[in-house]
């Protein structure tokens, strides 16, 4: 009898450990498939994204399945990112999403044919029926937060110069640099079309781009609303935190006590993934802000 009680007690203890969110740290490699992303409030300042913050240890992890983007060529031949592990918290003003996924190589792009690792969070802009999960649809826009390792390097170290990308290159001179007084870069850049046209790609980035889209081929970078991101790569795995304001009127808003939706996309730059060559979630994941 005593032995049976002890055995039952151990079973109850084991079950309670495996289902307790507080103990997710004890089994970080086996998160449950994510059904609803519950975003709990934490009493911490989320203004700076921190992948190693203590509150992540008490936040449940959910597993999200990814698939090679199947709809539009060019696309990956095989699924390179099988799953991502997702957590989220909020501080009443901002929501922070922590994402982990396997990627054997850290890729920050720069030279021809080099592409950056990246991840994007996607949210519907309007309430009501959800837009098509892949890039939204006409009249059903989506709002994306697109982090790239390349953009993060820009933010941390400045936009790389040609000399940094190609240390052994040599050039006699850049004629446009002689047009104006030394120290004034305007003339040197004035004849670079992407610069003079104001293409955000040609300027130093912050870690995360905000994008609006209404279907395939329509995504456009928009002026940001203070979203931040910080990724760390170690031992073949990225751990990334993207922080966004909860409410961004006219774009996408996550409301306290309400349910919204989120979708994910991942790029492995080292495997040539860029643009439509990516792995995606095939359906919206409900998000509940608690």
């Amino acid at each position: 009898m005593n032995r049976t009680t002890t055995w039952l007690g151990a079973l109850v203890l084991a079950l309670s450990i495996s289902t307790s969110p507080a103990c997710s740290k004890s089994a970080p490699s086996k998160p449950e498939p994510l059904k609803t992303l519950v975003v709990s409030k934490v009493s911490a300042d989320l203004s700076k994204p921190d992948p190693d913050a203590a509150y992540w240890k008490d936040t449940p992890e959910g597993l999200v399945k990814m698939l090679a983007q199947p709809m539009i060529a060019p696309r990956p031949e095989t699924t390179t990112t099988e799953t991502i592990v997702v957590q989220a918290v909020h501080d009443g003003e901002r929501a922070a999403f922590r994402l982990r996924w396997k990627d054997a190589d850290k890729s920050e792009a720069g030279r021809l044919g080099e592409y950056s690792d990246g991840l994007a969070l996607e949210f519907p802009v309007k309430d009501g029926p959800t837009p098509p999960v892949m890039m939204g649809g006409q009249g059903m826009p989506v709002h994306l937060f697109h982090w790239r390792a390349q953009y993060q390097r820009d933010e941390e170290q400045g936009k790389p110069t040609v000399k940094q990308l190609y240390p052994n290159q040599s050039v006699d001179m850049y004629p446009h640099e002689y047009k104006e007084a030394p120290g004034n870069p305007s003339a040197a850049e004035a004849f670079l079309p992407a610069v003079i046209e104001g293409n955000p790609q040609a300027y130093q980035k912050v870690s995360v781009d905000e994008i609006l889209a209404e279907g395939y081929s329509t995504s456009s970078v928009v002026v940001g609303h203070g979203a931040t991101a910080k990724g760390a790569w170690a031992n073949g795995e990225w751990t990334l935190v993207i922080v966004r304001p909860l409410a961004i009127p006219g774009y996408s808003s996550l409301k306290l006590g309400a349910e919204g939706n989120v979708a994910f996309a991942v790029w492995q730059g080292g495997k040539g993934e860029v643009g439509s060559r990516k792995c995606v979630t095939m359906q919206w994941t409900p998000v509940r802000i608690q």
Binding site: G110, L112, V162, L165, L192, P193, A194, N199, A202
Partner: peptide
Amino acid sequence: MYNPHTRTSE
């Protein structure tokens, strides 16, 4: 051709 400075193709 890819321009690594403007990060666009030309």
